[in-house]
């Protein structure tokens, strides 16, 4: 248990590097002529990357049997929420100057804002209910609620795809990764057990290794 705690601490520290990069970039003028755009883009992209890492934990556990990774799911999920919150706060502060009526108009009229906003709302709900207390309180429905994370991922990728002007390559790469992560979960829908590394190995090999 203490080892996992240390690992989680290190994860958090490493995940702060992009933020540190932004702060340093701001101090040194490296964010260019439009720092707001750079901050919005970087925080949004890191939120998406961390969401993908979060959803990579379970396949890794299932495939390799690396159950020690289990505690990192929540750590990464909360870090994803942290960057998503920075992303949303940047938009709300510098693009909208906290004019809530403008926010509502944007959500209503711009499809990419609509999906991005709903993705963030899901992340908010999941972050709030990520504590032990909420897990106990919600019981079985906690699991059902937290399956919304897949919807949050889809909406986040669509948000990225819809906002780019010409170069779709980058969001398409994320779309491909997200599809793979979702596809991994498909067998579970049909009550099948997920693929594991152990089942891939031949029995002979297995014997050798365990010897």
């Amino acid at each position: 248990m203490p080892r996992a705690k240390t690992g989680q601490m290190i994860t958090v520290l490493v995940a702060m590097i992009p933020l540190l990069g932004l702060v340093l970039g701001l101090l040194t003028g490296r964010l260019g002529a439009e720092p707001v755009e750079a901050i919005t883009h970087e925080t949004g992209e890191w939120a998406l990357r961390l969401l993908i890492l979060t959803l990579l934990i379970t396949p890794l556990r299932q495939f390799f049997g690396w159950n020690a990774l289990a505690p990192y799911r929540r750590t990464l999920g909360l870090l994803c929420f942290f960057y998503a919150a920075l992303h949303f706060a940047t938009f709300l502060t510098f693009d909208l100057s906290w004019r809530i009526d403008d926010l509502l108009t944007e959500i209503r009229e711009r499809p990419y804002i609509t999906v991005g906003f709903f993705s963030f709302m899901i992340l908010c709900a999941l972050a709030i209910t990520s504590t032990r207390g909420w897990i106990k309180r919600l019981g079985r429905s906690w699991l059902r609620l937290h399956r919304l994370v897949y919807l949050a991922l889809v909406l986040a990728v669509v948000h990225f795809l819809w906002l780019v002007k010409v170069d779709r390559l980058e969001p398409l790469v994320y779309a491909a990764i997200a599809s793979a992560l979702l596809a991994w979960r498909l067998p579970l829908l049909f009550g099948r057990r997920p693929l594991t590394y152990a089942t891939l190995r031949r029995p002979g090999e297995k014997a050798q290794k365990s010897a």
């Binding site: 590097i17 992009p18 990069g21 932004l22 340093l24 970039g25 490296r30 260019g32 750079a38």
Partner: peptide
């Protein structure tokens, strides 16, 4: 760090 190194 992609952002900083690309800027450099």
């Amino acid at each position: 760090l992609p952002l900083l190194s690309s800027c450099m």
